[in-house]
Amino acid sequence: MARSVSNRAKALNTAVAGTLGFLMFFPILWIIVLSFKTEEDAIRAPLEVLFNSGWTLESFFTVQERSDYFKHFSNSVIISLGSTFLGLLIAVPAAWAMAFVPAKHTKNVLMWMLSTKMLPPVGVLVPIYLIFRDYGLLDTRIGLVFVLMMMNLPIIIWMLYTYFKEIPGEILEAARMDGASLREEILYVLTPMAIPGMASTVLLNIILAWNEAFWTLNLTAAKAAPLTAFIASYSSPEGLFYAKLSAASIMAIAPILIMGWFSQKQLVRGLTFGAVK
């Protein structure tokens, strides 16, 4: 039984949690505000910024005009979607086989796959950089797609595996009793049941790839730079142009922020490898 709680206690909880939540969210809120300001207004005192200045979309246009924002945006889209879907293509059969036709070593294989994720990227920075240089992959989107796909492949396989595992065996047996052939079983029963899990997996991996900031910073220059690298170019001295930095930042994080809100549950599953339920 859930215990009834007095409204006063509830109000107190709401006030405390709301305040702390607001503080956590404040930096994001602040760049949303600043992105709609002129540069002159953006560096004024916070209260003046809020109550004593106009609103403008100017910064968004400037960011696009000066540094071709959409090129970087599309790089980010291509790299994160490309790596995720390529990964999915390779991971689905593997996860499928491990979940539905487990062999003696399935568990060990799975554990080994996860262990590759524990390898610190910096440990292989040098050889990857040199290989990329020698094969002309530096600053190419295809190169990054491949690296990020490899980075996230263990997570994709792992998540799919756990989702497939959750499909109850009795359902498959029921389908067999109902006369479904293997093809029909996959088409009408398994796939529809697996789609939510696959969607979650895709969502989380797009987020991870979008925000990846080790390989994207080290392996790109101008051409293939996604938003992480583009924003890094504001490190100095352009960072002092608050309005433009804010506009660029908001555009870079908005899509992922929205996707992230939908994927809280999957985040726990995907990033803890099932160790927390």
Partner: peptide
């Protein structure tokens, strides 16, 4: 003979209904 061709129908403990249909 495969299960489906035996002319038998089964009701499972978990009911095994297809959740998406």
């Amino acid at each position: 003979i495969v299960p489906a061709k035996r002319g038998l129908a089964m009701v499972f403990q978990s009911y095994a209904l297809y959740p998406h249909m």
